[in-house]
Design a protein around this nucleic acid. Sequence first.
DNA 1: CGCGGACGTGAACCGTGGTTAACCTGACGA
DNA 2: TCGTCAGGTTAACCACGGTTCACGTCCGCG
Lengths: 198, 198
Amino acid sequence: MTAEPDSALHADAAHPSRREQILQAAARLFAERGSRSVGVDDIGAAVGVTGPAIYRHFAGKDAMLAEMLLRISERLLAGAEQVLADAGDDPAAQLAGLIAFQVDFALDNPALITVQDRDLGALAEADARQVRRLQRRYVEHWVGVLAALSPGSSTADCRARAHALFGLINSTPHSGGRLSRPVMQARLTAMALAAATA
Amino acid sequence: MTAEPDSALHADAAHPSRREQILQAAARLFAERGSRSVGVDDIGAAVGVTGPAIYRHFAGKDAMLAEMLLRISERLLAGAEQVLADAGDDPAAQLAGLIAFQVDFALDNPALITVQDRDLGALAEADARQVRRLQRRYVEHWVGVLAALSPGSSTADCRARAHALFGLINSTPHSGGRLSRPVMQARLTAMALAAATA
DNA sequence: CGCGGACGTGAACCGTGGTTAACCTGACGA
DNA sequence: TCGTCAGGTTAACCACGGTTCACGTCCGCG
């Protein structure tokens, strides 16, 4: 409580605004129990306020979930496009970049990974459609790279392979985390690379 | 209504009792929307009865979920032990057997796979503990085989690798299923083998 | 026959939880 | 100093959904 939240515009990592605190706490709780099992009172308590205080910052519980999932999808898509731009025209380098990016994201944000693929169905249809559109674009970037690396494969085949790689990399939240981060990072990267070129 | 997928719950596939019909319909609905989002009325409607009729067959909604998850865990564990017994003492053959078994199960029962790792948290603590015990024994069989194949690896490392392989193989429900079953089977098997020996 | 048990139904009960309402406070800026 | 506004609080409202109840029906079996 010592530091002033002063301007609430920036997402300062050291002193996040109350709104950001709520989103982060909600993400953690949603990941642990599922969005339907978490009450607004729980979310409020996690940041030291009562339940209804949430409504000063969000239109409702579903709006929180929608913003959460939209942000995740946007960050992933933007990250992938940045990676592809940086990697030049070499498909092998692009694949390595995408894998490294996804591994980093999954290790840094296990809760978001969990929520993203568990609670998409809890969104209103309009929001769900928009999230799926972003996810689809993200997947298609992977599909393009995989197709460039294996000209004989169909698009559907590449898509299945991409989903399998996501499953592999996103297994992090289930792995208990008894391994140090660099070791885990190396393991997942190696396995994903081996699986991708199988 | 013949030859339904996710038949692992059936005691009698030809003429499933009403009780089995309910379990199967519930599994499908739980996988689609999450157990908290599907009502007893929905489950009843899926088998042509009203909601309260469920209570002639189950103590309640949570009892249905508990039985569902217990059966899945038991079936997986029994299958793994059968595979290991059949494969003899060759770790490579054992790994191939485990992978083939998990791939088959995931392709045959996508709904059960989804429910198992999404709705475990919705169980009462006593039931959850029992399911986790079974799951742990299943995982440990994989860990043992992986450890035998790579003597330099720690147990924690082998466990992380096992979870990554599960994530890869269990990606099936997310892959839309636009690929024929034998093609998908071959793809997942090849990727899992490559990732396991990375 | 007629009785009992298996199986269903519609109506009612009621706890849970999202949302709203009414009110309070402390920090400014004019 | 006062008005305003951001941000909280408690109490109340209300819909939803799991569960129970009282009752009906269809059989198989003595």
